[in-house]
Amino acid sequence: MFYSNKKLISPTTINELHAIMKSRTNGIFFAGGTYIMNQQNYLKEEDTIIDLSNIKELDEITRNIQFVDVGCMVTANKLLDIGKLAFTDLLLDTLHNTATHIIRNQITIGGALCTPDIRYSLPGTLSIMNTVVELLDLSQDKLVSKFIPIDKLYNTKGELQIEKGVLLKKIRISLDNYDFEKFFCIGDPIRKPESTLIISFRANIDQTILNKVNMCVTFPTCGMYISNEIAQELIGAQLPLTISRTIIISEKITNDIKKEITGISALQIERCKRLIQSILFEIEPNQESIEISEGLF
């Protein structure tokens, strides 16, 4: 059975964890456990469970004017409670939609980002929020730390690209404000990930012109789609977008998705097209900046 006897180690500091990982190649990090406990054959006989819950450093949230640093062992509920004043609705909606309150108590941020083969809503939203992650290479003699953009953690199929012995220590969420944000999660990502579709979208609007667009479409079992080209194409567009323009752009995006990601169902593609159309159609000129500019002249 998957819960047959395993060696368990519970380090209390990063240095202790480093010492353990240097001597072991078969260590499996255990964060919240919501993924591992669901898998029948995930753990192998020789694996050693490394419980990260006793390392205080990984359970910290710090904030300055520009960003918030969130340790990998912070739970989704804790981030949601603390982040209410700091984060925009896009991230709060994403956290709300990650799971029910009961499961969110257990889901950790590191765990949600590091599931090997399935992508939930968090990676997509964090990718468009210019989030970077700090990776700690624990397999080297010296502790090596580096920051990389979160979307570099995954390939186009959405598979995790972290090597064994590397720990996602924390994420750094930028606190930029955007004028228009939308989050959609259609389907049940935990029970029916193969038919679920998740879209995170945000844009900056200067009077009647779109001047910054970020969008990520996530198909939990097939991959993530982030297109800079199409975002570039939308920059400078006059608002509100016409129906024909929204149809052309959504067609372009879905054709691009079909080319880049395999295994998506026709239903997911159709839903994706319609949702993108509705999002684009909803973007309205920024009245606040229009009033400011009118006041100036």
């Binding site: 819960y3 255990f30 108590n105 257990q106």
Partner: peptide, 9 residues
């Protein structure tokens, strides 16, 4: 909490 997600340790 869901009992199936809590390991013994």
């Amino acid at each position: 909490t869901l009992g199936c997600l809590i390991p013994a340790f």
